[in-house]
Design a binder for these strands. Sequence first.
DNA 1: GTCTATAATGGGATAGAC
DNA 2: GTCTATCCCATTATAGAC
Lengths: 214, 214
Amino acid sequence: MFQLSVSTRDRILDTAERLFAEQGFHVATLRQITQEAAVNLAAVNYHFGSKQALMRAIFKRRLDALNTARMERLDAALRIDPPELEDVLDAFVQPALAFTRGGDAEGQRFMQLLLRAFADRDTDLHQAMRLEYAHVMRRFADAIGHALPDADPERLRQQLDFIVGALTLTMAESALKDTRIIAGELVRFAAAGLRAPIPTDAEQEARFSLEARS
Amino acid sequence: MFQLSVSTRDRILDTAERLFAEQGFHVATLRQITQEAAVNLAAVNYHFGSKQALMRAIFKRRLDALNTARMERLDAALRIDPPELEDVLDAFVQPALAFTRGGDAEGQRFMQLLLRAFADRDTDLHQAMRLEYAHVMRRFADAIGHALPDADPERLRQQLDFIVGALTLTMAESALKDTRIIAGELVRFAAAGLRAPIPTDAEQEARFSLEARS
DNA sequence: GTCTATAATGGGATAGAC
DNA sequence: GTCTATCCCATTATAGAC
């Protein structure tokens, strides 16, 4: 943290982030990372302790930045009471595509990394991510609850998971030039889903009997 | 395919599918797989040729079954013209949670595997999956286009990606007992998003200037 | 088809000089 | 803080007996 030569440490972080995102944690090797970062092989263990610890450091750096950016935009949206639903969703979605000063390329890279973390259940990283996310999720669920006072809180959390899935997979997949438009589309799509009325029991019954036919 | 001892081959397939889903392709080792399947280490190479080929075989088996189940339900939904939007979405979503005779546990396992395949860009498996998916996606996009004749086809494909993301990540994450209810929630959520009117240019403009303030 | 034994490779981590 | 050299370990894949 307080070392003079930040450049070696940061070159490792940047290079490893790229290679982990492109190839995955187990495929990218320390030899490859240190070679492309033009640092010595032993530097990883000196600065981070282990390959796992390096991954955690990469993750923490970006996720903290993403969460902070989301919170700031959420606070801005909450200056209106009740907040506008689209503003709350914007606060969640927009920072995901450009939360670093580096621009879209880094944002998409981290989305790929996030997707890998989601896929890696039963791992320290997955648990850590869920914990860091839980706090932010609760705040966004609350904010949406204020924008839609009639909604069921339990259902809102479920629907927020839909949005996370759509956002993460789409941002990790899409061509870079489209991310800004796609984010707007997602906000519109999600807002409509959240505002949709809950079907009555009678309508539910009709749907299930329809399914049974097929 | 036409060998007498299908049991060794199938025990490898089932065990490897479970371990790949739980741990990932590179963490699960052939030693672990063959030990838990109670077959000899060399049997994998004899029956499949390599670890990669084993993965492809696992994937093909389930994805073919999933696609077939989806197509059948889609055909049923298309017997009404124009089809009911919720029926089309049901045809896409419901088979994902119980497309094998084994029930929910296997379905969720494969969703975890699918999520890993999505995360693994630049890999043979990812490309193969996209190709197999493309055909089904086009048919579903067309069907939704029939249910919503005023919608823009390009936008529909984008929104279908949202649904795939929400479905895949949610099904891979969720507790088993909830999958049936969650699928119904997703259909309702997605239907509302698809039916949402496209904002006018004036409304778009208002939103962007609102963002600039924050 | 199934097994044992092993070849061939590459990985993460570390000791110790500078 | 940085480097070289190396330890130690695990992996996939295969050769060859049965």
